[in-house]
């Protein structure tokens, strides 16, 4: 357990609780934001190792928030995964081409979720 810090941007409190508990139980530290704006602030303040970004958020949507992160040199290189219930045919390709480093659809399979997070954290460290 290396204790990387992961920023979760998620507006649904039950899902936030699930992701936080799974990540903490796996050994990560978490930062939590419920809006895109809050997520951007936390990211530039704490420079997390990975961002899990919901798409449908109350203020900015996930894609806009991603672009704001990329515009800021401090946060530009942080890997950002889309974590979304937008999982219709073609959505994965749409988000990857929008600039996300990865895509996890909801509902998640907890084991696959952890594997994907770990994979991107390791890649970020290398």
């Amino acid at each position: 357990m290396t204790g990387e810090r992961i920023l979760v941007v998620e507006d649904n409190d039950k899902n936030m609780k699930l992701f936080r508990d799974v990540l903490v139980a796996t050994g990560y530290r978490t930062l939590e934001a419920t809006t895109g704006g809050e997520g951007i602030e936390l990211a530039s303040e704490h420079i997390p190792d990975l961002v899990l970004m919901d798409i449908q958020l109350p203020d900015l949507n996930g894609v806009q928030a991603l672009h704001r992160l990329r515009e800021n040199t401090r946060t530009a290189t942080i890997p950002v995964l889309a974590l979304t219930a937008q999982a219709m045919h073609g959505d994965r390709e749409r988000f990857l081409s929008a600039g996300f480093d990865g895509y996890i659809s909801k509902p998640v399979n907890v084991r696959d979720f952890i594997d994907t997070v770990r994979e991107h954290c390791d890649r970020g460290l290398r």
Binding site: N12, L18, P107, F113
Partner: peptide, 11 residues
């Protein structure tokens, strides 16, 4: 809207 609660249920 259906997938969001399912995420909590299955997760």
């Amino acid at each position: 809207e259906l997938r969001t609660p399912l995420n909590a249920i299955i997760g």
